[in-house]
């Protein structure tokens, strides 16, 4: 079958009948309204004076109320400027870096989990956890944490040599994957103090590095899980052909697998970018004056005077603007990915 006829057929399947079209558009328009109305409300709130908000509701600028750039002025050029510009730059750097790193590391791991088999020995893992517990207990008791770590590692290595061979039970790829995703199950509230102490000891508090590394660790499981499904759906034959031609694993991964999974990669990237872009609690603790990110500025608009809706609206708008641009830009790639998907069979 030629590509052309394939595309033609495809159109047949996906082209809706007129009635389906009407229903589809009705649903789409309703949902568009559901999505856009709150955003419209944000936009007009950002143009209101406090008095207009408090004695509202007013809906249409110039008709209902006189719009003003008062809040925009305040956020971008006024008193809040210092709490806007620098956090903004931080947010951009932290989110982009951590999302990119998460995508690279996560996609490799996901590929590995779909194409290789790992059999970590249960005994080794139990030993490892035991050693870690030992480390924590030692540190709690008051031993210098570096010494405690060294002791734990030594105990782990010695015992592994002696004991590991006695355990035969081993785990598989699914267990690794589940373990990874389980790392997201504990709410940030529970881990924020330990992470704070960790970075304090490393002297990395209030740096972008701390945030990047944390978000990387937090988002990796999601990348692995989403990409695992995409890689699983890619037929293995192509890779095998390439391998017979002498291509290395790395080469196959880079030039065959990744291009085939562009839609998945793009969607995944978008998520982790958004997660990192918007994270609040960890950012609150790991940052001080230098590395603060924008969600903190937004949350801070609710202080002793009650929520400052007008400033908040401005901040939310300027915060989503670049992400929307990225989404529009990447949407094309999702479309391209579609074509690849169509040809691949």
């Amino acid at each position: 079958m030629s590509v052309k006829s394939k595309l033609f057929k495809r159109k047949n399947i996906n082209a809706p009948s007129p009635i389906a079209k009407i229903i589809s558009y009705t649903i789409l328009v309703i949902w568009t309204f559901v999505v856009l109305f709150p955003l419209y409300w944000l936009a007009i709130t950002s143009l209101k004076h406090p008095i207009d908000v408090n004695s509202g509701p007013y809906y249409i600028p110039f008709v209902d109320f006189q719009p003003s750039l008062y809040a925009w002025q305040y956020v971008l050029f006024g008193d809040l400027q210092n709490d806007t510009i620098r956090p903004y730059i931080n947010t951009v750097i932290v989110a982009l870096t951590s999302a990119t790193l998460a995508l690279i590391l996560g996609a490799s791991a996901a590929y590995a989990l779909t194409r290789f088999r790992y059999n970590p020995k249960l005994g080794t893992i139990l030993l490892f956890i035991g050693a870690l517990l030992l480390d924590v207990v030692l540190t709690m008791v008051g031993v210098n944490w570096a010494i405690a770590l060294a002791v734990a590692v030594a105990v782990f290595l010695i015992l592994m040599q002696v004991l590991a061979k006695r355990f035969h039970r081993s785990l598989g790829n699914n267990d690794i994957a589940f373990w990874l995703i389980s790392q997201r199950m504990l709410p940030p509230v529970a881990v924020v103090i330990p992470i704070y102490i960790l970075f304090q000891r490393l002297h990395l508090l209030d740096t972008r590095t701390a945030l990047i590394v944390t978000y990387l660790a937090v988002n990796l499981p999601i990348v692995v899980w989403l990409m695992r499904d995409y890689f699983q759906s890619i037929p293995i034959d192509l890779e095998e052909t390439a391998a017979i031609d002498g291509a290395s694993r790395y080469r196959i991964f880079l030039s065959i697998v990744l291009p085939l999974s562009v839609p998945g990669l793009v969607a995944t990237f978008l998520f982790v970018l958004v997660f990192a872009w918007n994270e609040y609690l960890l950012a609150l603790f790991l940052s001080g004056a230098n590395a603060q990110t924008l969600p903190l500025t937004i949350a801070a608009q609710n202080a002793t005077r009650g929520p400052q809706w007008w400033y908040m609206s401005v901040l939310i708008l300027i915060m989503i603007a670049p992400v929307i641009l990225i989404a529009i830009f990447l949407e094309r790639y999702i479309a391209k990915g579609l074509l690849v998907g169509a040809v691949k069979g």
Partner: peptide, 22 residues
């Protein structure tokens, strides 16, 4: 240096208690 009102108490105490003293 400013942090959101709702978390000021915890933030200051953590800073002092862990010896960060920033």
């Amino acid at each position: 240096i400013t942090v959101p009102f709702s978390d000021l108490y915890t933030k200051i105490l953590t800073d002092a208690a862990t010896g960060t003293n920033s």
